[in-house]
Amino acid sequence: MDSLVVLVLCLSCLLLLSLWRQSSGRGKLPPGPTPLPVIGNILQIGIKDISKSLTNLSKVYGPVFTLYFGLKPIVVLHGYEAVKEALIDLGEEFSGRGIFPLAERANRGFGIVFSNGKKWKEIRRFSLMTLRNFGMGKRSIEDRVQEEARCLVEELRKTKASPCDPTFILGCAPCNVICSIIFHKRFDYKDQQFLNLMEKLNENIKILSSPWIQICNNFSPIIDYFPGTHNKLLKNVAFMKSYILEKVKEHQESMDMNNPQDFIDCFLMKMEKEKHNQPSEFTIESLENTAVDLFGAGTETTSTTLRYALLLLLKHPEVTAKVQEEIERVIGRNRSPCMQDRSHMPYTDAVVHEVQRYIDLLPTSLPHAVTCDIKFRNYLIPKGTTILISLTSVLHDNKEFPNPEMFDPHHFLDEGGNFKKSKYFMPFSAGKRICVGEALAGMELFLFLTSILQNFNLKSLVDPKNLDTTPVVNGFASVPPFYQLCFIPV
């Protein structure tokens, strides 16, 4: 009986604490739906499609509103004006990374994606500088992407125009580009180590996009005490870190300090320079996690976009025909596509942009946080508050993009057929937390897609009208449904 009384008292205290925290903070924060004790607004949000729920709530509470995930307040920004004001106009104040408990377990605050403060700034600055020195957006990395595009075309030829699921092959190409940047090595598509790495990356994007992960991140005790797919994700990350550590040891034994070959060499050189400046942010643990982040951000996002792009091109054969006509006119058949071609191919450029806009790969991006107490639109948001960005509300804005739910390359073309930029184009987020590999991803999408369409016609196994382009999961990332196609050599 005594234990029951204690339990009831504990629960009562928890409920009172929950109510007090919510009521004391709500006077400062933007308005929002009334949260339930302990669980907050979790029942009012469709976990399978958070973005749709945010759109519905914005119609009631406006472009800036507050939700509670458990006891934790989260300020939501919906629509271009609110997102721009926060991420661009007040970029420094909104540059923090929001709480992501599962990532905390995986990387302990290291790396480039989930770190904060001085650690994040130094690692991000170093990573950007190193990638630029190796030619991100310049010639040397373009050579690597072109080489991988040629290998991709050869792998597709091996399908002999038979029906195939493109998931694996389209994942190999961007993964190999990242391998060449980090390890100075590309792998054969049949290499077992490479296959294991690909498998872990593919599993992780599916797990991260599941409703279960949303629950884990908002009720963090689940991570330590409950079984579930989150444990598989943590094991996959541990596998990748151990693999990278092996490569780091190989580099330490063979590195030429006067001739760095890749990202690992550059990081080890930085560690050597910083060894007298303790404590340094440049450690082996930081290198492991930064490399894992580059793999995660640079492989599955690009391969998922490529997979979605081919599905949309199957669905819209008239678009595919126009792209192939432009390829034939500008590039021809006797040389590989290059980035200089893009400025002469406005329709193809528009298609690449429209694919990214339409699929809305990361509907709410990753959570941000404010780095200080900030007054925002007459609300006071306390330091450390998590900020949720609705990228969907920007990419699918119906004023900027008429009929935003329709796939239409003319969203990025003017009346004369010239490519038209849009400030609403934010597939990689915006501001200080914009994806480090934005330029690389854009290069890969253009070169891989043009190389495929230069060499193959795409054949659907069903009537294009019957192809479903609805994402199968739409949590962290929008993942396309399973499909097969035939690559018919031109």
Rank of each mutant, 00 (worst) to 15 (best):
S127M: 11
Q484S: 07
I284D: 05
T304G: 04
F487G: 00
C338K: 13
L67R: 02
T55S: 12
C175A: 15
N474S: 13
K52H: 10
D262P: 04
V323M: 13
A477C: 07
T305F: 04
Y225T: 08
P260H: 07
T371D: 15
E438R: 12
K420T: 06
V153M: 03
I387Y: 02
Q44C: 07
T34L: 11
D408F: 02
K28Q: 13
V38L: 14
R150G: 09
M406H: 15
T386Y: 09
K247A: 10
K459D: 05
G437C: 03
P337S: 09
F295M: 15
I123Y: 06
P166A: 02
E328M: 15
R335C: 06
T469V: 13
F100N: 15
N133E: 12
F100H: 15
V177F: 00
Q324G: 06
H78C: 15
E122T: 11
R125M: 06
I387T: 07
G117T: 08
V153S: 01
L17P: 13
P427I: 05
V76E: 03
R105A: 11
V436S: 08
V248P: 03
S209K: 15
N231L: 08
P166S: 00
L67S: 02
E147S: 05
K399V: 10
R26A: 10
K160D: 12
C216G: 14
K206S: 09
F94A: 07
G79I: 00
P480S: 02
R342M: 09
T385Y: 04
R329C: 12
R139S: 10
S460Y: 01
R157V: 05
N116S: 12
K420H: 09
H184V: 03
E326S: 01
Q44P: 05
F126Q: 08
S23A: 12
M255F: 13
C179R: 00
V462F: 05
E415I: 06
N334E: 14
K399D: 13
S460H: 02
C338H: 08
N378G: 14
S393Y: 00
C486G: 04
T299H: 06
L306T: 03
P63D: 14
V83H: 05
D293Y: 02
V330M: 10
F183C: 05
I264G: 02
H344Y: 09
L388R: 05
I434V: 15
N334S: 14
I331P: 03
S220G: 12
E328T: 14
R21Y: 14
N116M: 05
S23M: 14
S336C: 13
S451V: 07
N56C: 12
P101A: 12
K273P: 06
T66P: 02
V319S: 06
Q192F: 05
K28M: 12
L287W: 02
N403H: 12
P480L: 02
L445V: 14
E326H: 01
M271E: 07
G27I: 11
N474R: 13
L268P: 03
Y68V: 04
S53P: 08
L311R: 01
N116C: 08
V83F: 07
C266F: 14
P481T: 02
I182S: 01
Y347I: 05
V490A: 12
L131W: 05
L67A: 07
R329P: 00
R186I: 00
V60Y: 09
L19S: 13
H276I: 09
D293C: 05
H316F: 13
T299I: 05
F126G: 04
C372F: 07
R333L: 09
D188F: 02
K432C: 04
L380G: 04
M426V: 13
F446P: 01
W20R: 12
K121Q: 13
Q252Y: 10
V8A: 14
V351R: 02
E199A: 12
C175L: 12
F487D: 00
L306N: 00
D256T: 07
S254A: 13
L388K: 04
S286T: 10
P211H: 08
Y424T: 09
T470H: 09
L361N: 03
C10R: 06
L380V: 13
Y189E: 00
T283P: 05
P221F: 13
Q214S: 11
R342I: 10
K249P: 05
I389L: 14
K241Q: 03
R144T: 11
E415D: 13
L4M: 14
K158M: 08
K121L: 08
F401G: 01
G46P: 14
Q44H: 11
V5H: 13
S127H: 05
G416V: 14
M129E: 12
F412G: 00
S23P: 11
G96Q: 11
L170I: 07
E326L: 01
L14S: 14
K59D: 10
F425I: 06
S140C: 10
R105E: 11
K383V: 05
L294M: 10
L77P: 01
S460N: 03
I387E: 01
D397F: 05
G27L: 13
F295T: 02
M136S: 10
E246V: 05
D89E: 09
A149I: 01
F110D: 11
A309E: 00
P464R: 05
T364D: 05
F407N: 00
G137P: 09
T55Y: 13
R105G: 07
L128M: 11
D262E: 03
K158G: 08
Q193F: 09
H276R: 10
R333G: 09
I215C: 08
S422C: 10
Q193L: 09
E104F: 15
A173S: 03
L362V: 15
V330Y: 11
G417V: 04
T304M: 08
K399M: 10
I387W: 03
I182L: 15
K84N: 07
P367T: 15
V479D: 08
F482V: 14
T55L: 13
R144C: 11
K241C: 03
V237F: 09
P464V: 10
K375H: 10
T66R: 05
K421I: 10
A238I: 07
P409S: 02
H230F: 11
N457H: 15
F487N: 00
P260T: 07
S95V: 08
W212F: 10
E199F: 07
H344M: 12
T320E: 08
S115R: 04
G384N: 09
M443E: 02
S53C: 10
V5A: 12
C164H: 05
D256V: 08
F263V: 06
C175P: 02
V352L: 15
K84C: 10
F407Q: 00
T302M: 08
L90I: 12
R132N: 07
T371S: 12
T450G: 06
L361V: 07
L440N: 00
I169T: 03
F448V: 01
F401I: 05
V490H: 13
L90F: 14
A173P: 02
